[in-house]
Amino acid sequence: MQGQSGLDLQLTVNGQDEEATVPSRYLLSDLLRRELDYTSVKRGCDTGKCGACTVLLDGDPVKSCSVLAGQAQGSDVETIDGMDDELGEAIKDAFSRNHALQCGFCTSGFLLSAKALLAENPDPDEREIREALQGNICRCTGYTRIFQAVEDAAIRTSEGD
């Protein structure tokens, strides 16, 4: 809804109901970082190419620097801070166990993309993992350990570990 000073938005972030009034030009990343103080959402390239700003919007990975805040009206948004369910914990543990992170700047994008993949497809093959993560760039680790971590998380969650 358009208010006098901008868009009046209501959404759920990491299970918490949130409200904000923002300019219509605001991006989802601006809303999350500046207005709602979810600073774990990183801004990398500001062009939608690096994936550092990835969040889950109604379960789908999106680059929050490429989505207008108004498009999230009434939606459920998950940031890295909300990955505390069983699947999220398994993925984070697999990334740690497989040494799939270094500086951490890109990590949330990879973790959230992996979560969306495994929520939809609990037994992906290597091609499916690569496709699901292709919008994320890591400048530190390379990708082999990241792919291995997602495969590890899939195996462990299917075993109930």
Rank of each mutant, 00 (worst) to 15 (best):
Q2V: 13
Q2L: 10
Q2R: 15
Q4E: 12
Q4T: 09
S5H: 08
S5I: 04
S5L: 04
S5M: 03
G6R: 11
L7Q: 13
L7N: 11
D8L: 11
L9F: 01
Q10G: 13
L11H: 06
V13M: 01
G15P: 04
Q16N: 11
Q16H: 10
E18P: 04
E18K: 15
T21A: 09
T21P: 00
V22Y: 05
P23G: 13
P23W: 02
L28C: 06
E35I: 02
L36A: 08
D37W: 01
D37Q: 13
Y38W: 12
Y38G: 12
T39Y: 04
V41T: 14
R43D: 02
R43G: 03
C45F: 02
A52T: 05
C53R: 12
C53P: 00
P61M: 05
S64G: 10
C65M: 06
V67E: 04
G70Y: 01
G70W: 00
Q71P: 03
A72I: 00
G74C: 09
S75H: 08
V77S: 01
D81S: 14
G82W: 07
L87W: 01
G88M: 08
G88D: 08
H99M: 12
H99G: 03
H99S: 14
Q102K: 10
S108A: 15
L111G: 07
L112I: 01
L112W: 03
A114S: 15
A116K: 02
A116E: 06
A119E: 14
P122V: 07
P122E: 09
R127V: 08
E128S: 11
E128T: 14
A132Y: 01
L133M: 09
N136I: 03
N136H: 02
I137Q: 05
I137Y: 04
C138R: 08
C138M: 06
R139W: 05
C140G: 06
G142M: 03
T144I: 11
R145S: 14
R145H: 15
I146D: 02
I146M: 09
I146E: 10
V150K: 09
V150Q: 08
E151S: 15
A153L: 00
A153Q: 06
A154P: 05
A154E: 02
I155H: 09
R156S: 05
